[in-house]
Design a protein around this nucleic acid. Sequence first.
DNA 1: TTGTGTGCAAAATGTTTGCAAATCA
DNA 2: TGATTTGCAAACATTTTGCACACAA
Lengths: 155, 155
Amino acid sequence: MSIPAARDKFRKFLTQKGLRVTNQRLAIFDAAFAQKNHFTAEQLLDYARVIDDSVSRATVYRTLPIMTESVLLREVDIGTGEKFYHPNQEGGSSQVAQVVCLDCDRIFEISAPFMEWYGNTVSSKLGLTPVTQRLQVSARCDTLRMTGTCPRRAS
Amino acid sequence: MSIPAARDKFRKFLTQKGLRVTNQRLAIFDAAFAQKNHFTAEQLLDYARVIDDSVSRATVYRTLPIMTESVLLREVDIGTGEKFYHPNQEGGSSQVAQVVCLDCDRIFEISAPFMEWYGNTVSSKLGLTPVTQRLQVSARCDTLRMTGTCPRRAS
DNA sequence: TTGTGTGCAAAATGTTTGCAAATCA
DNA sequence: TGATTTGCAAACATTTTGCACACAA
């Protein structure tokens, strides 16, 4: 899905929910979809303020759940205290794992189709039905360890 | 490993690290190992104060990392803001997944031996070496949905 | 017009830290 | 003795909320 299409989906989602299409919400959307990597609420505030300097921290925090609910954004919690967000370009399969590089702090999204099977297997033994599942790997950079430089640092 | 053995391991760990064996630290240990389910720092403070009412919140927060480092306690972050802890009775394999029941808020620890394979597979594609991995499933109680009562609520 | 959305600042939450007094080795 | 540990309260970091004003429908 292209960014204009996503923007349109966002507007439609707001309208259909009886929410208003405000400049701030659009600025936050634009800021989010201009990002290549994962970002925090605070970073998104900075980005959004470049587009519209009237955007406040409160509005960012109030808009993020809306964008998450509309499946335009994916929320990622890697246990660092702050939440990360990521534009959800595709349909929005939840069968995605994260690999977090401890050296460059980058988060990689990796397809993990077997997660659903695992969730079902393990939950059914407990008499539970899985709702969500998450798989996260934290790892160290091989190249950095061997050569002293992380190839991804540069890019 | 029995509780007395674990207690002994804790004392040895402290001494060997040049840390002191204080009443507060022992009270916190005893409180932690008396728990059946996962607990938070705040809950542990309450439990420890029953044993020794001089225990403060700060000491609990300062002791938890020590007990985690000594592999007597396992830290579990399920993305709810607060961290949970759990006595690590066995050797301490990190190949454990958590199933969190959204209805009774209980956390179940489940062996997940394939996680290591997965971490290696996915990380190597990125030129990374896995350090830790976590797999968490959130689920709903079947019995509660069908009969209106959660069998685990009672116990 | 009017009720939703906004910015601001204060509150809430979970955790960490500075410091003087207490205590273990 | 003397350095480590403690309790207290203040500091922190992130997120949430109350309220009066602004603005989209």
